[in-house]
Amino acid sequence: MSKVPFDPTPKFQEYATPGALVSTEWLAAHLNTPGLVVVESDEDTLLYETGHIPGSVKVDWHTDLNDPVSRDYVGPEGFAALMSRKGISRDTTVVFYGDKSNWWAAYALWVFRLFGHEDVRLLDGGRQKWEAEGREMTKEVPTRAATTYPVSPRNDRELRAYREQVLEHVNAKGCMVDVRSPQEFSGELTHMPDYPQEGTLRGGHIPGAKSVPWKRAANDDGTFKGVADLRAIYEGEKGLAADDDVIAYCRIGERSSHTWFVLTYLLGFKNVRNYDGSWSEWGNAVRLPIAVGAE
């Protein structure tokens, strides 16, 4: 396993996988640790260029992780080439951080896991907390020596759900978490005449899904809530259990990556898949079942 030590912050020790998070204090003290690479992944593709954590490299969800033609992720060769360019080896400890409460950081982390990259961690509070604490930022882009990263298979089966599998899950009355806002869940439409239309043709949610907006797992400063609060929401209120087969979705899979991370690493759920097609696929597809309303 990793030679890079784990962050001993007490809050993290309560989570199912304490090593999955690092604090801003810990990261600031470990920036130059050999074997550790910090990756920034944002919704706004220009944010890294405005300033970033010293030594961090940028991975853009769209231009780096997505296939340029098909709606899919890069393949094994593409991922290995990306890792090589970014100076990441197979045994590198990768700490992800980003904007929007780490949506895209969690998304990038999830894609790294699809390829079996082992040591992945998330900066608790992300870019927002690092900046709010006045920590050092730089515009200097590091030049990291290219690595030889092994071409590794992408194992979608355990972590990723496709549309057909979600439909099977619906029919089997499996557990699903819709992490979008209540308005998106209920199917309310907000269009007005003459306004550009939204990208989905139908509003609502996948039948049987429980509404747990992603934000409920986060504090206002972008950090994750403590384990007791998280258990109260997902287990107490929504009745999910750690051995349930759970599918999380949102609009394109980024907010649900955040919830996937919470369920998998913080609460120790064993079988959580992210449906990255999410509402932008389901709400456009022909003859798939849709439910509307708050329940």
Binding site: W61, N66, P196
Partner: peptide
């Protein structure tokens, strides 16, 4: 090529 379709949707909007 630089930005995603979602980002472009904001610009066209």
């Amino acid at each position: 090529e630089l930005v995603s379709p979602l980002r472009m949707r904001g610009a066209t909007g």
